[in-house]
Nucleic acid binder design. Structure first.
Length: 558
RNA sequence: GCACCGUUAGCUCAACUGGAUAGAGCGUUGGUCUACGGAACCAAAGGCUAGGGAUUCGAAUUCCUUACGGUGCACCA
């Protein structure tokens, strides 16, 4: 039920529209004051009365009923207290009936949202810096699906560029089949790193030749490239499975090789293309941006050219409602330019392209550097978290079945959660101490709360009916928090901000733990037992759903 | 140099987009439960929201400005 609407419809203030009242309604800082509040300051001018007097008269004239049981004027605010028992019944029954769908909706029905995320580079292992895009994109994918949209996950592979000429060159000089088969992607990466530190003029020249060979369809060069590509894909697949993310398309940069010429032609036809210093550009000076490079002076295409082709292809293929690019903020200018060029081309849908920018990851002793070997591989981080989780489980719950499985959920969850808990724009300094911390505001805390709730329900069952006879503050807080879940999911989608769901989960877990600590459930007297069991089950539903949306598993026991 | 982003408790971060006494976790100190799972709960200490100005009933939030930090700025992706 929309309480704000309910309240605003019952308030009658001459000269102030219901719309204005609705949007003015806020939440009081303290639950003891009430559940909703209407600040009356901005109505003072129109009504020619002091806010205090307005609040008093509105509170007095408000028709209290079985939904809103109290309206009270305090210092220019009208504080409304809702009937918690009614709310509790509605929320608990709703959550229990919907189960895994609690919080979902159909608001996105018929709309497609493309999400370009993770976008791995061929021949490069997954390091901690790739985690943000993968975790954020993966969560948005689930969130949009949950809201009824059709999400399309796109892994825009980095499979185009001179670095692959370098790689093949390095392989021909120093590599061999056995080593690569044995060492997998790390062996390939080592070759690339070695090229960057040891290659001379001659090899640089060869590398450019190899890149040309790939482009011109040379059999050997392409076989090598395809081999590296398939090694990379099977490697990242294992990581994606752990992280619970999926893609509907792996159309990478190379996919657009034959789709750029029409874009270039169109740019030329529309008079947007211009020669400058030998290169073909779109001049964006009018918009306060440097030019967007379309073709190099040697005629080769660029990153932006491919992104233009990709955007057009996606619009034609998916007819998206929104197309998200989950890419670090370093690319801010690039996307601004690409979006502007599309707009200048007359693509009215350019407004639907969104750069979902997030902050950078660095290490405690500075930026990561693959070349200097200063990297933290994601698989190592996951392994250490799982190992630690396993250790704690063995200690606290040695008889637990499938310990390894539970340790995976806990360990991987901690890694994902670490990438999702803060506002995405914030930079992250990676530290093992932080991801390995399983206390406080963490996914482990939420999982542990679920395990507790689950344990209670296993013993007491979920009642088919329950009576409510007044609520304690601890109970009311849990009820209100469960009720807030659907809105949290919507906010997260609207702001492309999974951290809203992550914070929601922690907040509900805190409220539940307080309730759990203060109120006996299984040994409660009379009606209380059934009500509390139902409340516990409803809270568990909301907690599970929020973790699931983030891609984090929820073990029954841990 | 120009542009964008950031700056909130010792540390890491919130704050419903302009509302009441700025909240959490970690860390510190002290407590809680004869356990429905202690990976928990409670309390204390800790703040001129980087500095200065402006807007108004009211600003961490909007607008100038300064400082500090980050990122980007033509043939890499």
């Amino acid at each position: 039920m929309d309480y704000k609407k309910y309240i605003s419809e019952k308030i009658n203030a001459e000269g102030v529209s219901g719309e204005e009242i609705y949007s003015a309604i806020a939440l009081p800082p303290n639950p003891e004051m009430g559940d909703y509040a209407l600040p009356c300051f901005k109505f003072a001018k129109v009504l020619r009365k002091s806010p205090v007097l307005i609040a008093q008269s509105l509170a007095e004239s408000y028709p209290v009923d079985e939904v809103i049981e109290k309206a009270e004027a305090v210092n220019g605010y009208v504080n409304f207290t809702i009937n918690k028992s009614a709310l509790a019944r509605e929320v608990i029954e709703g959550a229990l009936a919907a189960g895994g769908k609690y919080g979902s909706s159909e608001e996105g029905a018929g709309k497609t949202v493309c999400i370009d995320y993770s976008s791995v580079n061929i021949a490069k292992p997954f390091h901690i810096g790739h985690l943000s895009t993968t975790a954020i994109g993966g969560a948005l994918y689930k969130i949009f699906n949950f809201l009824g949209y059709k999400a399309v996950g796109i892994n825009h592979l980095g499979d185009y560029g001179t670095q692959f000429g370098k790689l093949i060159c390095a392989y021909k000089h120093w590599g061999n089949k056995e080593e690569v088969e044995k060492g997998g992607i790390h062996a390939i990466n080592d070759l690339y790193v070695r090229f960057n530190s040891e290659a001379d003029e001659q090899m640089e020249h060869e590398a450019r030749e190899y890149f040309r060979l790939i482009e011109n369809g040379d059999k050997e060069a392409n076989e090598l490239f395809d081999w590296f590509k398939s090694l990379t894909l099977s490697y990242v697949q294992t990581i994606y499975e752990k992280l619970n993310v999926r893609f509907d398309s792996y159309a990478g940069e190379r996919f657009y090789t034959d789709k750029m010429q029409p874009v270039i032609d169109e740019l030329r036809e529309k008079g947007l293309l211009k020669e400058s210093e030998g290169a073909q550009i779109v001049d964006l000076e009018k918009y306060g941006m440097p030019p967007c490079l379309i073709l190099r002076s040697d005629g080769a295409s660029l990153y932006a050219t491919r992104d233009l082709a990709a955007a057009i292809y996606r619009k034609n293929t998916y007819d998206f409602y929104k197309c998200l690019y989950v890419v670090a903020y370093q690319q801010n200018l690039h996307f601004k330019q690409v979006f502007k060029v599309l707009e200048l081309m007359g693509k009215e849908w350019a407004k639907d392209l969104v750069h979902v920018a997030y902050g950078m990851v660095s290490l405690e002793d500075g930026a990561m550097s693959t070349r200097k070997g200063k990297v933290v591989w994601l698989e190592d981080v996951i392994a250490r978290c799982v190992e630690k989780a396993y250790g704690i489980i063995s200690e606290k719950n040695p008889d637990l079945e499938n310990k390894q499985d539970v340790a995976e959920k806990v360990g991987v969850g901690a890694v994902i959660f670490g990438a999702l808990y803060n506002n995405k724009i914030k930079d992250i300094v990676f530290s093992y101490d932080k991801v390995l911390s399983f206390e406080g505001e963490t996914s482990v805390y939420v999982q542990y709360t679920c395990a507790r709730a689950n344990s209670v329900i296993e013993k007491g069952g979920v009642p088919s009916e329950f009576e409510i006879s007044g609520l304690l503050p601890q109970e009311a807080e849990v009820v209100k928090s469960i009720a807030a879940f659907p809105q949290a999911v919507k906010d997260a989608a609207e702001k492309y901000e999974p951290s809203i769901v992550a914070r929601y989960a922690v907040d509900l877990a805190q409220k539940f733990n307080k309730f759990y600590f203060d109120c006996k459930i299984l040994t409660a007297e009379g009606d209380k037992k059934n009500f509390r069991l139902a409340l516990t089950a409803a809270a568990l539903t909301a907690l599970k759903n929020s973790l699931t949306l983030l891609g984090i598993g929820v073990p029954d026991k841990m």
